[in-house]
Nucleic acid binder design. Structure first.
Lengths: 248, 248
DNA sequence: AAGTGGTCTAGACCACCGA
DNA sequence: CGGTGGTCTAGACCACTTT
């Protein structure tokens, strides 16, 4: 039974209820759900409310529907519970490594062509460059170099220092959580396998020529403004990047 | 003005209309759209119809909304027009290379532990293994080894031979378009940078030890059933994998 | 207070599917 | 044919933001 007076929207409650039934197995794979009109009657809500709940569950991949037949529970995917943005800390912990982060430096730079294009700002605009080293059991595993517009950047650096003083490991992802006024909406990332050059080999403590994963990220806010341009380099033997996405 | 009698749903027509206005610049970045109620009046549709159109455009990242303020045009992202699943052929053409595909082989195998887990089938189930080589200007650039459940697999192999006989380059992505009864809904992929071992070095014509991008893919259909398990290896110097996704 | 988006109702007609 | 999801209407009340 849903609580109509609650602060939680009805369609959310219905979603949670159905999600629970699927997770516990009360609704098994390929099982047909009650029809939309039946759900209306069962939960005493209108069809729009039911449809909003079902639509979002289809979007999340938990249900699928066929016109004229009904709505069904999707087969669970292996990684259904995997987080979508792999957080640094849990990734290392799951490998049994003690995570830590070091701030290599923060400085002001002026935007070169690449940064200016990515961040949609004029050439030579002032940027804050924050470089971090991710460690697992004191061994370097990842190197980050992030560029922020000035205003966001100073706050990011502050947030990073705060995290560091608390002895918590983090990446720039985590720092966004410390700045509630800046919330990322989407990312573009490109993945490249590269061979370590002398500089990166030195930083990550591997032999030159060893494979590294190079990820270039642009973070965008809700209004479509870019808030960060970042290069990340991961030791290939320590890192695997996993992603789930709609086809087509 | 929308055509109510048309086969195209009203909210689709509205979406297309707004999308057009954004693309042509009639609605610029950060510009406020008419309120939902105003759009109702302008287009002579109900608020639900307007909301469905707006919701989908927000979902696609073209608009953003703020409670109490209004709906706004998002800043365009650099890669807004980029396709989400990078097709082999256009990737190479954009680099000025003539793409081609070779079928290295197709054979029946029985599922080992890894394949069985990924495809959610019993151990030792019969699978079709299709191996392809992607070429650019006659040089190998990518190696694919895909495993399909028997039924789908035979059709895939047939589709591949047909494509080949037409002299078209393709990957297994493209083959799904030839099988309308099997339509992928989502993918999971993991990216790893590896060093070429002797076998891969031989296949891809690079020196052993050179970096390669190794992508492991599982393709899922609408009902959540896996339809393919695939290992792909790309020459790192020829390939860059690009992706856009929601944050969080 | 007025306007915005967020949620919700109670109807309606259509196209698709199975018996 | 009856039941299903897909689309749509014309209202309603709420929470949030700005004036």
């Amino acid at each position: 039974m849903l609580s109509p007076q609650s602060a939680i929207p009805l369609y959310q409650q219905l979603k949670d209820d159905l999600r629970e039934k699927i997770k516990t197995g009360a609704l098994g794979p390929d099982e047909r759900l009650p029809s939309e009109r039946e759900l209306c009657a069962q939960y005493h809500v209108s069809r729009m409310t039911v449809r909003q709940a079902l639509a979002e569950l289809v979007n999340e991949g938990l249900l699928y529907r066929t016109h004229g037949k009904g709505t069904f529970v999707a087969r669970p995917r292996i990684d259904q519970e995997l987080v979508r943005v792999t957080p640094f800390e849990s990734t290392l912990r799951s490998k049994g490594l003690r995570p830590a982060t070091k701030i290599l430096g923060s400085r002001m730079v002026s935007a070169d062509y690449e940064m200016a294009t990515a961040l949609a700002i004029p050439l030579l605009s002032p940027l804050v460059n924050l470089t971090l080293l991710g460690l697992g059991n004191e061994q370097p595993v990842a190197y980050y170099s992030a560029y922020f517009p000035e205003k966001i950047g100073h706050k990011m650096v502050e947030a990073a220092r705060l995290r560091l003083s608390q002895g918590v490991s983090f990446t720039t992802y985590d720092l966004y959580n410390d700045l509630p006024e800046v919330s990322p909406a989407r990312l573009t990332q490109s993945f490249e396998a590269i061979a370590a050059d002398d500089r990166l080999a030195e930083i990550l403590q591997v032999s030159p020529g060893k494979p590294l994963m190079h990820i270039t990220t642009v973070v965008y806010l809700e209004d479509g403004r870019p808030s960060e341009y970042r290069h990340s380099y991961y030791r290939a033997d320590m890192y695997r990047f996993h992603i789930t996405r709609p086809a087509k």
